[in-house]
């Protein structure tokens, strides 16, 4: 059996006594896709926040490639190989598309290399590849702020890929995208799983169905159910969690 890339062990995160994550355990294998779903407030984003060090847990451990990263500084976690796309596109407005990708790609370069121009040749090749991958070839030198919403989402996915992390965390990568864009994004995620592990959060069940990957349902900070999307969907407990909330009818509709 392969050793897991990431192991979340008995994790508890509390905000002023409210347990956003409550004794959660999860493990991710190398080169696999895992989808996290669950109603609003289930703890999905908080879990990603905790993995990348933005939020520190009250209890439990996060082990990445055999190393405990529960208290590691955020930038070191990235250097170890975990990079995250945020829910609201976190791109750098004043830089061009290429510069955004270049910045993400060269984080492991020594400080003195910052007193030079442009991107190193080996990284340039990779960044140019990513430009094609995220369909932004013709926007290469446009300022990131000028992109449409869907393109911003793709740029940030591109940045996460450019970081060359082993584990990519994608928080709602298909949010606000058109039908065609959602399909392209799903295809992109599947392509990426040849080289990286991914944890994907999304509410859009068409998108989740296209990913064709194991699904974990979170509810009140706990793992409710794990399995294929169909298995999860037919589970009465999952259905009641979703149907109990008026604003979350996505699962039934899909």
């Amino acid at each position: 059996m392969t050793a897991p890339l990431l192991e979340v062990r008995d994790l508890t995160v509390s905000f002023d006594g409210f347990k956003a994550i409550d004794g959660l355990s999860l493990s991710i294998l190398p080169r696999s896709v895992r989808v996290l779903i669950g109603p609003n407030g289930a703890g999905k984003s908080t879990l990603l926040d905790t993995i990348i060090g933005r939020v520190r847990p009250a209890q439990g451990h996060i082990v990445f490639q055999g190393r405990d990263i529960t208290r590691t500084p955020e930038y070191e976690i990235v250097q170890l190989g975990i990079c995250r796309k945020f829910q609201a596109p976190g791109i750098l407005d004043s830089l061009s598309v290429f510069e955004n990708l270049a910045l993400a790609a060269r984080h492991h370069r020594p400080w003195w290399s910052f007193f030079r121009f442009g991107l190193e040749a080996d990284l340039t090749e990779r960044v140019e590849e990513i430009l094609d991958l995220i369909h932004l070839r013709d926007k290469r030198d446009a300022p990131a702020r000028s992109l449409a919403h869907g393109q911003k989402q793709w740029l940030e996915i591109g940045m996460v890929v450019a970081s060359d992390a082993d584990l990519l965390l994608l928080d709602e990568p298909a949010a606000g995208m058109s039908h065609a864009e959602v399909e392209q994004t799903a295809a992109l995620v599947k392509r990426l799983s040849a080289r990286h592990s991914l944890i994907v959060i999304d509410h859009d069940m068409t998108f989740v169905a296209q990913l064709d990957a194991p699904v974990s349902v979170l509810h009140m900070g706990r793992l409710l159910k794990e399995g294929s999307l169909d298995e999860v969907r037919s589970d009465p407990q999952v259905a009641s969690v979703y149907l109990g909330r008026v604003e979350e009818d996505a699962l039934g509709r899909a």
Partner: peptide, 28 residues
């Protein structure tokens, strides 16, 4: 115009984002 300048602009626009791209902004 150097990489330092680009990183500096990036820190101005989104210090936290830069941190989550693997940089410690403090020394810069």
């Amino acid at each position: 115009r150097s990489n330092f300048g680009k990183l500096l602009t990036a820190i101005r626009d989104g210090e936290n984002r830069v941190r989550f791209l693997g940089y410690n902004p403090t020394p810069y």
